[in-house]
Amino acid sequence: MMKMGGLYGHRNINDEHLKKWIIDWNPKEYVDSCLNYFKIQETEEINSFLTKQVETVKEIASNISVSDESYLFDELMKFMTEAMFYCYFRFDSSTAYCGNFYEVLIGFADESTKKKILKGYDYIEAGGISLEKDGERIGHIGMMSDLFWHTFYDQYIVENNGAIEHIRNNEKDITLQIWGENLFEGKDQFNELIERILFECNVTLELNFKRTRFESDSRLEGEAKRGILSLTDIKLEDTPLRYFNFANYTKIPRHKYLAYYQVLEFFFPRIVKEARFSRPSELLIVEYIINNTFTELDIIGWLQDKADKGNHFIEPVQNYPTLTPITNTDILNLISKRIYIVRCSLVHAKEAPKDVNFIPNLNDDVIEKELALIKFVAEKVLYKWSKVNEM
């Protein structure tokens, strides 16, 4: 059968890969996934019921045969539950996986690329890019597959008081599908392949794509919040204020972090002049700012107020030993060092071990957790060091 992409991209799944993959399903993973996802109490009856669901699909996969006009996956889908897709088909938070088939959520990096791929306004017609290697078709960029829709159904649809509501427009989302054999081994090589494809789209086709992800907050119904903002008479310098606000212009954690850090950086010249450093270094300047803006009690109080977010800063960060936990001794210098280390890992790209540099798309979850601290510091530094009235 002719290979195809887009809506029917999953039909490129190799039948033998598919059978073996399903037969290897671990029922315990499904039971645990259902208990966690649907927030239900574990009982022997529920365990038995869920286990039987998995064993039934595994048995069907072992014995089913299909005609030349049909596809094995389409037939097996009829026996799968929604929860099976959530459990087994999610390679990561924005990638679907099945046998030899992978599908990644990506986005348009600019409006020009979007208009070249999508046609229309309310009703969308999607184009696509066929991916080839050595003359063989191995993937596709364009409309998502039916498999991806089922795998991340709960990111597009919610049930609200019995009504079905759309929380995301699947017609305007695009994915990158890969189904070729022996293209990579393991998750690291998979991610490298995706980055290389995005790079070659950029330099060869002048089409700019980026990896993206689902945001958990999009599933919230919202609050229709109303409030009152009583403006203060506090005067702040315009330039560092703009750096602070620029963090809200991007969703990318590393860009947010650098925007907040630039609030501190703006004041470096006057810090050097005030401190009279003979040989100032960036770390020395950051330490001076922190020690002359905060007390240890300020930081302790902030960590306590942050509850679960605060725990990230007082406990070791897995895989990142350079992020020294903030203990009860030498708090201000520990914070200074931590901020400086994160800043260096984002600004500099010199070759280094993976637990030193924060690499784009690989460490966003860690950087995102670091944002609370640098935002708090930037806010207080902006208040402390702004000298509008003296200028």
Rank of each mutant, 00 (worst) to 15 (best):
T56S: 04
K337S: 13
H150V: 00
F49W: 09
R254T: 12
E136Y: 11
M391R: 14
D364F: 09
I234A: 10
S67Q: 10
A247N: 07
P269H: 12
D355Q: 14
E370D: 10
F79S: 04
R338S: 05
F79W: 07
E195C: 03
E195Y: 02
K119L: 12
H17I: 03
I374T: 12
K78L: 11
V342P: 05
K306N: 11
M1P: 04
D134W: 07
T151L: 03
E55R: 05
V31G: 01
K369F: 01
I164V: 14
F49Y: 15
G128S: 03
L198Y: 02
E44D: 14
I129N: 04
D92I: 02
V203G: 02
Q189H: 10
D146Y: 05
E368A: 12
H255G: 08
N357C: 08
H150D: 04
D308L: 11
K78G: 00
P27T: 04
I117S: 06
I178N: 04
K39R: 13
Y97Q: 04
K116L: 10
T43W: 07
S281K: 12
I138R: 07
E274Y: 08
P325F: 11
A247I: 11
Q262W: 07
E136D: 13
I178E: 04
V388R: 11
D305F: 06
E82P: 00
I228R: 14
R343I: 09
I252W: 07
P353K: 13
R242P: 00
Y8D: 11
D146H: 06
K20P: 00
V263M: 08
C34H: 05
S336F: 03
E237T: 10
F209V: 03
D122F: 13
N208R: 15
K52L: 10
Y153I: 08
R219D: 07
V158H: 09
N291Q: 12
L76G: 04
F244I: 06
K133V: 09
L371W: 06
T239D: 10
K3H: 08
G222W: 12
V317S: 02
N191G: 00
H140T: 05
Y71P: 00
N357G: 08
E351R: 14
L105S: 01
D134Y: 09
A275G: 05
E282D: 12
K52Q: 13
K384I: 02
L362E: 15
S336K: 08
G107E: 10
M4K: 14
Y340M: 12
K375S: 10
P280T: 05
F199I: 11
G310K: 05
P253C: 04
Y102W: 13
Y97K: 11
F214C: 02
S67N: 13
K384D: 03
I164Q: 10
L303M: 11
I46G: 01
Y260C: 07
Y97M: 06
F358A: 09
E282T: 06
A372M: 03
E274N: 12
N319W: 11
I46Y: 06
Y102V: 03
T56A: 02
W302F: 13
D110E: 05
I194T: 01
I138F: 07
S281P: 02
F294D: 06
